[in-house]
Design a protein around this nucleic acid. Structure first.
Lengths: 245, 245
DNA sequence: CGTAGTGTTGAGTCAAGTCAATGGTTGTGG
DNA sequence: CCACAACCATTGACTTGACTCAACACTACG
């Protein structure tokens, strides 16, 4: 089980290069760890934040509630993800982050993170790239919700989660644990829970997936990807970075 | 008419503080200016980019095409916006940027911009904040497309553009030039052109807006904002920045 | 003055939503 | 160990927002 700093470093190095000194500086951060229950807020909309959280284990999601009371999930956070780079240098958040499952979170004081950003260009670059990659995921979600039909929309989400979990070693033979209810999925893809249920059943009937108590099995990722036009490029999980060291 | 560097500096200083030296460094960038026709690509998906473009006049949009051939507009760019911070340190883009109107664009070599980022923490911070603000806009677009009905969706887009144009002095008495066809609007909000037409007519019939050859007039922004639950916070246009200089 | 792009309108269809009832599972407390 | 509650998944019946197709009007421009 990798420690919080290993996770963070690994996450940042997905897209950028750090020097030995950079890694050491990260390891010198003061971190307080906490175990959180499902539905706990990591960040609450319109809050001021003094801490920067890193997800160590478990899942979380970004989320926004409209005036009409509708909840929209904006992205899924997996272990290693920094919860809130937006807290750097800004005061007020525009959305919330909530635990999806029970899990552990590490907190670092914002100021320390900010110092790292201002004093270590490599780390600044790594953070920028992480934020850019996140923005790219948001763009793809716009496309997903705006352009695709129910079934394809869900398939796309399942593909994304599959690839991301694979990248951190949390999937096995194309199967992974997905602790989201159908209601959660509905909030993520902008469909009603009833329609999510029907679409999932269709995906299963067409033998794209199998389901079993909170797990997704897929023996045909190729078919899934073709079904929904999934192209992992937008995740920027390969280190296509020009070195400037 | 402000020059390209003034526009860029002003844009960056919307959210972060720059020192005199930072501003000077930006003004020393070598910039080549070009005038572009509508539909010209500023960035093309899967391209490698050597230039970083800044929109000087006119409008542009980010855009993605699905396998099924559907076009989705992801955001609108207005004068002063940097077209492609994503080009910094990364090689391949995941979406395209196209001119909406005729307009002028300034090009800076990526390497120069990257040096600025690596050597000037204040500028790095300003760029990070610009990227974070853009990500925030993407999130709101997810909500817009996923949660709101046709009429509200369009109203929300009109509110956003109104506020952003206002911030750069391109609106007058709540009216502004909007050089988007109904087809463009459809691609931006994920509706069919026909439905956009009907929704716009409804908005006009309910006297939220008036329309006249490529312009939007609104005498009742308050009503518009309430109609669609628009809250400008997500645009992060006020400089809510903790000073660290 | 014709052509092409855009805007407008109507009619019919369909994907997805809503409402409502039924089953299953898990967990808890008596 | 059972009864109950709470939550989630499933299914059917019906409604509706939005799409498609198709025709027609307007405007700008060469």
């Amino acid at each position: 089980m990798p420690g919080p700093f290993e996770l963070l470093v690994r996450n940042l190095e997905l897209r950028a290069c750090l020097s030995e000194a950079d890694r050491a500086a990260i390891h010198e951060l003061k971190l307080s760890e906490r175990s959180l229950e499902p539905l706990t807020y990591l960040v609450r909309e319109a809050d001021r934040v003094g801490q920067c959280a890193i997800l160590i284990s478990g899942f979380a999601y970004r989320q926004k509630i409209t005036d009409a009371g509708e909840k929209q999930i904006l992205s899924i956070l997996v272990p290693g993800d920094a919860v809130d780079f937006q807290a750097l240098f800004t005061d007020v958040t525009d959305h919330s982050v909530q635990m999806l499952t029970r899990g552990d979170v590490g907190y670092v004081a914002i100021d320390e993170f900010e110092s790292l950003f201002m004093e270590r260009p490599n780390i600044a670059r790594a953070i920028l790239l992480a934020v850019l990659a996140e923005a790219s995921v948001f763009r793809e979600w716009i496309v997903n919700v705006a352009c695709r039909r129910g079934k394809e929309r869900i398939a796309h989400l399942l593909c994304e989660i599959g690839v991301r979990l694979d990248a951190i070693g949390l999937s096995h033979n194309g199967s992974y644990d997905l602790p989201m209810t159908q209601g959660d999925l509905a909030d993520a893809v902008g469909l009603s829970p009833v329609h999510v249920n029907r679409s999932l059943k269709t995906l299963e009937a067409e033998s794209f997936i199998r389901r079993g108590r909170g797990a997704i099995h897929c023996d045909n990722w190729k078919g899934m990807r073709e079904l929904c036009g999934f192209n992992a490029r937008y995740l920027h999980l390969d280190r296509l970075v020009r070195e400037t060291e």
